[in-house]
């Protein structure tokens, strides 16, 4: 238990181990730990930021969706109105067209009647002359009685 040169050797060994630890053990481990600490801290901060952004995006999307729905409803309403208008105007047009066609048909019929009347008038005149000839037993001079015949035709 006496103090010996062990003291000196152990001191050298001790200082060597301390030097080794200070040079090769402590700095790399401490650096790695600090780096991990900052990495974890920034990771957590990023996660929080992302959460916040997600919430923002969600509320934004909801607003957007509501707006889109409103617009869609408006467009639908417009389309419905426009359809009703179109049906209405189509109906009117059809009615007008019908009126017009009816009018045209009516005037054509009138013309046909008039034409028929004209031709009938001529034929009635001939028949009247012929009937008169039979009654009178002689021919009626058309030129002589043209005045009477015309008056007759006009009466018919």
């Amino acid at each position: 238990m006496n103090l010996t040169a062990t003291l000196l050797i152990q001191s050298v060994v001790f200082l060597y181990f301390v030097w080794f630890c200070a040079k090769y053990i402590w700095p790399p481990l401490r650096t790695a730990m600090r780096e991990r600490q900052t990495a974890i801290a920034s990771g957590l901060a990023a996660a929080e930021e992302a959460d916040k952004r997600l919430a923002q995006a969600k509320s934004g999307a909801e607003a957007e969706l509501a707006k889109a729905k409103e617009e869609a409803a408006a467009i639908l309403e417009q389309a419905r109105q426009r359809a009703a208008q179109m049906v209405e105007s189509a109906k009117n047009e059809a009615r007008e067209e019908g009126e017009r066609l009816k009018e045209a048909a009516r005037s054509e019929i009138q013309q046909e009647i008039n034409r028929a009347k004209e031709s009938l008038r001529g034929q009635v005149a001939v028949l009247a002359v012929r009937g008169a000839e039979k009654v009178l037993g002689e021919s009626v001079d058309a030129t002589k009685h043209a005045q009477i015949l015309n008056r007759l035709a006009a009466e018919l």
């Binding site: 080794f20 630890c21 090769y24 053990i25 790399p28 481990l29 650096t31 790695a32 730990m33 990495a39």
Partner: peptide, 14 residues
């Protein structure tokens, strides 16, 4: 001590 800690220090990553 030196072996244990330096082998950890060598492989130390963040």
């Amino acid at each position: 001590f030196v072996w244990m800690f330096s082998s950890a220090a060598k492989k130390a990553t963040a």
